[in-house]
């Protein structure tokens, strides 16, 4: 074949392959494209970091402060605006699992996105601190031991964490990392409960 023709065929094949590769990458996540896919990718990468952290706190893998810090820092760089910018008004199409509630309660949604970064960073800061014993060391609700008597303001039947020291990232950074981990998972769950499609 003539040199130029060979080169042209080369371009053609290469170009086709490149387009196919790009297309298949763009069509992962059940056919999601564009911004929907971008945020699914973001969540998947956050989930991967969470898996690493979770396995260390639950004892399935030996605790490594360096790995926890790195994974938490990664999550910390993906919350806030990095998350919210991927949710332009009404961008629910195709396989998106986003709920309209996101834009009906944007303040809450963006607060949770901010919290994601804040608590992930607190966890990164706390990663080296001595860890509490047992899961209960980071018990979310506080159970019976905290919150005073059942008659008090902080009735164990009620009691949310808002306003308490468990919300202050500066305090969390000084505590056992289990506390920041608990706050972080609460944030993930709160957003998934209100703003992600029910399965």
């Amino acid at each position: 074949m003539h040199k130029t023709a060979k080169r042209n065929v080369g371009y053609l094949i290469g170009g086709t392959l490149a387009i196919m590769a790009a297309t298949s990458l763009a069509h992962a996540h059940g056919g999601a494209t564009g911004i929907v896919k971008e945020r699914m990718d973001l969540m998947a990468s956050v989930g991967k970091s969470m898996k690493t952290i979770t396995e260390m706190f639950q004892g399935t893998k030996p605790y490594d402060a360096e790995q926890v810090r790195a994974a938490a820092r990664f999550i910390g760089t993906h919350g806030g605006e990095q998350t919210t910018k991927l949710f332009p008004e009404g961008s629910i199409n195709g396989p998106s699992e986003a709920l309209p509630a996101i834009w009906q309660d944007w303040d809450k949604f963006s607060k949770l996105a901010d919290d994601l970064s804040v608590y992930a960073r607190a966890l990164a800061d706390a990663a080296d601190n001595p860890r509490g014993a047992g899961m209960g060391a980071a018990r979310r609700g506080g159970g019976l031991s905290s919150g005073g008597s059942p008659m008090g303001r902080s009735n164990p039947m009620m009691g949310s964490a808002s306003g308490s020291p468990m919300n202050d990232p500066a305090v969390l950074a000084t505590m056992a990392p289990n506390a920041a981990f608990a706050r972080l998972t609460q944030t993930c769950s709160a957003c998934h409960t209100q703003f992600r499609k029910k399965q």
Binding site: G47, K51, A138, Q186, S189, H192, T193, F195
Partner: peptide
Amino acid sequence: FGLRFGTKPNGDVVGGSMG
């Protein structure tokens, strides 16, 4: 562990009513 923190084996955290 998951019943306390909502974490799942695949790295996700429960939402919906289970949340």
